[in-house]
Design a protein around this nucleic acid. Structure first.
Lengths: 312, 312
DNA sequence: ATAATTTATGAAACGCGTCCCAGGTCAAGA
DNA sequence: TCTTGACCTGGGACGCGTTTCATAAATTAT
């Protein structure tokens, strides 16, 4: 494997001049350029990225920390990020965390080791204050409201859409509903936003017995409906954290000759289109695009998008 | 940012000894180890990955070349790869290509530049002979039958499942069907496998007028049905390259009061479950896991999986 | 007691580009 | 004629771990 010094020796020019040719810099005579390029061609030389990265002090990798990849939220976000990264010269590195704090912390340590130029945090197992600590080692973009923390952020403003959805249900005379959310933690931003909106519309706390976390898939929705119906046979309305979850609920009702339930989905997936389930679009693709742009910029910025309630 | 030399100076030991401590090597006295670790702690030192990679001659990144990420094929494959890569110490780098040969070639060049340790090719815009040329720069795993080419491969054997699906349709007295495939090229492996199986079952070539390529989504299926029905109003059977595409076809029939069509989907997605569409499972998750394992091993190997026709 | 190992430790080279700075040429402006 | 400045080229330090090789002390084997 030829090195830049081989090219220099064989062409009769110095390493510096070869480097100038490689980087298309000024101050190289046409003769030198031609001679050097000929040798490069002849020796089939390409510069070593590892050496270049060390010299430059950083590589061109942007890490994306996300719990997993089988949820439309992450998928759409990732597609947006990839779209923005395409032909930027930067690479997207997938960093699954399963919400495991130790693993997420390890990714932050890798930022410190210069394994990445920047990190996009779509997961949030860690406290924001921890992320904040690591911003000195590289740009960190989180995908939720950073509050008082000095972290760049790109996130969707969910509350108005949640209010619109609950108001829609209120008009339908709904008195009780299942809440099928994805995160398990009561402190998670989603959980807080949902219960706050619920309280605002219905003037009371949602029934804790009808709230279930950890929902992700069609199957999860199906089982959740089964579980809830067992203890509340008249239940006929569900607010869910994803269209597929809602589809699962509907399927359970269908399979057991129950009246079609009133559903609210999220993510604007195919299933909401197929089954005419009202949904909430959080514009994750656009969010991902923006997240990448912020990751590359090296100043602090916060960008909020508005979620949208869609009554198809 | 402290370097290993800072640690050496401050601890009174040599760079070599510090390196030994960092890499948990033998031949370090307990005293030296303790002293050095104390200084490392004190200066908040972590080794620089870029320097380490240069010294080692390679990094720990595995590139995954795929056309895009919004198709279940790639999604499931990617999830399998990520699953296998998890806690392996290696990182998965997403390399979208849009089937663009120039871009794919660029990724191969990056392998040469040591930007990746290995590449998994889930896209196939390039000829296999080109991939073969680059295997000398690192392991390359392709996700299709490599034929005579000396390239490691992990792929699904689709023919038997296709035969089963066509036989199923034949028993249903089907005489004409739309073929909605995803690749545009007539030479693509999928296209060849489908037409071969068709011919074997029906003893004739599929009607070229009823074949459409470039199918990917629900919307694509919907529009394809519209297009085909316009020129063949009695058409009532479709073999598709994805459950969502089949779902789109079904929706078109529903919307226009046409008899429910006979459908074959692929990928075992949610829509096939919801709409009871017979599907073909190519076990992409397992495939992805294996692809990663092969990417890490540095000897040539070929691994074939059997696709499965599922009549739900 | 002597030879053969094993253990400890460090100087310096290596991997391979990038870049600062110094030195020299040549033409346009004062 | 003298300055000034753009143009061209190269030596060598730098970024930062890893690793080879040499040296010396401490054990173990013979």
């Amino acid at each position: 494997m030829a090195t830049i010094r081989d090219i220099a020796r064989k062409s009769g020019y110095s390493v510096t001049t070869v480097s100038r040719v490689l980087n298309h810099q000024k101050y190289v005579s046409p003769a030198a350029k031609a001679a050097i390029e000929a040798v490069i061609e002849q020796l089939d030389y390409v510069p070593n990225s590892l050496a270049r990265d060390l010299s430059f002090g950083q590589n061109k990798n942007i890490g994306v920390v996300l719990p997993h990849n089988d949820h439309p939220y992450f998928n759409q976000l990732l597609n947006g990020i990839m779209d923005a990264a395409f032909s930027s010269g930067y690479h997207i590195v997938l960093l699954p965390s399963e919400y495991n704090q130790t693993i997420e912390l390890d990714y932050l340590e890798q930022l410190k080791r210069k394994n990445f130029t920047a990190l996009i945090f779509a997961s949030h197992g860690l406290a924001l204050s921890v992320l904040e600590d690591y911003t000195r080692y590289g740009q960190i973009v989180c995908c939720e409201n950073p509050g008082q923390h000095h972290i760049s952020a790109v996130y969707s403003h969910r509350e108005p859409a949640y209010l619109a959805a609950f108001n829609y249900l209120k008009i339908q005379q709904v008195t009780q509903m299942g809440l099928l959310l994805s995160r398990n933690s009561v402190q998670s931003p989603t959980w807080v936003a949902v219960t706050t909106a619920y309280q605002q519309v219905f003037s009371c706390q949602p029934d804790a017995k009808l709230m279930i976390g950890g929902m992700r898939s069609f199957e999860d929705g199906y089982h959740a409906a089964k579980h809830l119906i067992a203890q509340q046979p008249t239940l006929n309305c569900y607010f869910t954290n994803g269209d597929d979850i809602a589809a699962g609920v509907r399927q359970y009702h269908l399979d057991h000759q129950l009246a079609p339930p009133l559903l609210i989905g999220q993510e604007k997936q195919l299933s909401s289109l197929l089954l005419k389930i009202p949904t909430i679009d959080h514009h994750f693709f656009t969010l991902g695009q923006k997240a990448f742009a912020v990751a590359l910029s090296n100043h602090h910025q916060i960008c909020r998008f508005e979620s949208e309630f869609i009554l198809c």
